[in-house]
Nucleic acid binder design. Sequence first.
DNA 1: TATTAATAAGTGTATGTACATGTAAAGCGT
DNA 2: ACGCTTTACATGTACATACACTTATTAATA
Lengths: 161, 161
Amino acid sequence: MHVHTYICNVKLEEAIKSNKFRNEVHKAGLNILYTAWWLKTIISKELKEYGLTHEQYNVLRILKGRHPEQMCVKDIACRIIEKNSNVPRIIDRLELKKFVRRSASLNDKRETAIVLTPAGINILDIATAKVNKVFENFVVMDESSANTLNKLLEKIREKEK
Amino acid sequence: MHVHTYICNVKLEEAIKSNKFRNEVHKAGLNILYTAWWLKTIISKELKEYGLTHEQYNVLRILKGRHPEQMCVKDIACRIIEKNSNVPRIIDRLELKKFVRRSASLNDKRETAIVLTPAGINILDIATAKVNKVFENFVVMDESSANTLNKLLEKIREKEK
DNA sequence: TATTAATAAGTGTATGTACATGTAAAGCGT
DNA sequence: ACGCTTTACATGTACATACACTTATTAATA
């Protein structure tokens, strides 16, 4: 069932074929959900040719931040965007593809130490170049607008009105 | 593995324990993904007591927009936020819970006509009241800021720089 | 009209998410 | 040292997603 094109409708009303929003805040909620789906989809499609999912790419990227140090699962989990991601299973698949290696942690035997392999570093570098191009080519925004957007997104997540 | 609290960190840097962003646009991309996850998680938790997932709720809400008219699967699919949602399977689960009813379409036998049951309307009304409260209580934003946010999100999805 | 193409829905498979549970190791108070 | 609690990771299950493929039906066209 193919109900969308690669680049989707700019207007939210067209994307979800509705203009019944209770108010601008409600519309903003839907707009955030839709824009996140749009962005994730574009990135995922670019990563596909390297056999990586968006989630697997994120784990590799987090590991790179500490490389050549090892990281344990919980240190990856707390850096990931979608906090309920099942990190051990994402690592299972990266391990099968030989992009990471698991080993027992020496200081704490409960922990699993994970480290990038040379193949993992290599695929990450190539994939990152592609993802960066997504931002250059598809994400249309000047720095000052992006800064305003960042402030608004952090405002929306404040605890109390 | 429980690495987050119900209401998460307001600052993106704290949420993903990183302040290495290439620029404000890159940060905005991650901020959109994180805020969408945050919003979806809050809504999903509120819907849980009614035995509904966020996706099932969305399908009920779309059906309500046409009720008491029936809708076919593709008309639901083109209104859903996450365009790759597998609508037939979401309907399977709603049908099991007797919130919707499937029937053969008369004018086009390829189509399946879906309609809300009274139980479906009832649960939707209750669930909607709860979701509206999420926006009132957790989503902190005045109408004019939300309007700016909506404009920026639509700008980011524009096709060419 | 007969044949071919397109469409609608469903289904199979791999992956991911949300959450509960299991198991081993570490920490802690006595 | 002992027992209890907590932590780290793995795993089971239900649901959702991404995408390829199948089947039935309709539309298009030679």
